[in-house]
Design a protein around this nucleic acid. Structure first.
Lengths: 210, 210
DNA sequence: AAAGGCTTGTGTCTTTTTTAACAATATACA
DNA sequence: TGTATATTGTTAAAAAAGACACAAGCCTTT
């Protein structure tokens, strides 16, 4: 689903890079300048060997006996992940969830600017939320094409997620973050990731005693 | 991190069960009564063999030549995952994110009732959000102990997530869904799952051309 | 009642992922 | 300077996860 054939680096490794980056930037905020695979592993609940191996896919970022220069490693990871630039993201859905997403600071803080928001509800179109004006769904294709947006988030009811996805794909979006609790089908060249908190809760209740 | 040693069924299998349940309930809503591992696999982007193998860990739920009776399988999965009951969840943080979580219908719809909400901000305490009254953080321990809450969600700024987690653990919570973009450390017997949309976006930008 | 078409559950094989181990190198300090 | 300690990058081994393949069973149709 999210994967592509870079044929050398496993997708599961790519999936851990954001976690490394997140932990490293936090260390940075705490004023730290150097860390080690052991420290990072302890913080993330991952073995140090795994961290070293993952990072080694992209080059030797550390120094024997010393560890990793945090600022240097952060920059390298940002480059590898292509998040050393600002990404503009389209959001579809301006209901409760969409509004919450628009108000969340965490995206802009880490380089993802929600640049457009669409909804099909006439009552919402034209409204100003989080500095943006809600556009009608009809404008989606043109806006995305004109701006060559590559990223989009879906925050509409499950029933409409697939048709929205179709529109996004048709308009040229290459990566979708789907908040609707439903699997969507897209062509192979389009990536999809899912956010469904209930899935996580259910994963955990399996293990709960009583 | 979320794992425990049931020593027989891999955690990665448990993690897929909620996805199966989600797809199955949707089929049910569409009026379907029977499905197959092939159909389910197609919908989920998973091989049919994997689905059959995963389900076989819990017994033979299907019928050769026919497939799976959806209602029957849904009930079985709910039982296995222990979501054939309503869970009461404590929420910490009544800011933007916390409010959004409180207003989201998706939890209650699938058996997770947010029953208490806590915040440390005097301006928020006493406020009514989504049918609940925001309680002061000082009441967290007692409320959770009295009600034997097992599940909690963290929706506070990253800086406070660890101390909130400590309080929750101390109060007896066994599973935490952490929306704060930071890794938290908890004892082995406590499970943690993370929701961080930026992690998913970064996972995808790696693959984007240009 | 026999044949043909599906689909499950599972044993086996293959691939992927993780862990373990260690030589090489850096730093601190006696 | 030399010794002890720390930490990387990498190779090899182990473990885990996934794909494959097929006998067995169910249903429909002739």
């Amino acid at each position: 689903m999210p994967l592509k054939q870079t044929n050398s680096i496993p997708d599961i490794v790519i999936g851990r890079l954001p976690l490394y980056l997140r932990a490293l930037t936090r260390l940075q905020q705490e004023g730290r300048e150097v860390t080690s695979s052991h420290e990072l592993g302890r913080k993330l609940g991952i073995s140090s060997a795994q961290i070293r191996k993952d990072l080694s896919h992209f080059g030797g970022f550390g120094k024997q006996g010393t560890g990793y220069q945090i600022e240097y490693l952060v920059n390298k990871l940002r480059t590898v992940m292509q998040v050393n630039q600002e990404w503009h993201v389209a959001l579809v859905g301006a209901g409760n969830l969409g509004s919450a997403i628009l108000h969340y600071r965490g995206f802009a803080d880490r380089g993802f600017r929600i640049a457009w928001v669409f909804d099909s509800d006439p009552a919402k179109i034209g409204a100003h939320i989080g500095g943006l004006t809600v556009q009608p769904l009809e404008e989606l294709a043109q806006t995305i094409k004109e701006n060559q947006a590559k990223l989009a988030m879906i925050a509409v009811p499950a029933e409409h997620a697939q048709s929205v996805a179709n529109m996004l794909v048709e308009a040229g979006v290459q990566a979708i973050l789907n908040y609707a609790p439903i699997n969507i089908n897209v062509p192979d060249h389009v990536m999809v990731q899912y956010i469904d908190p209930v899935v996580h809760l259910q994963h955990m209740t399996f293990y709960l005693k009583d």
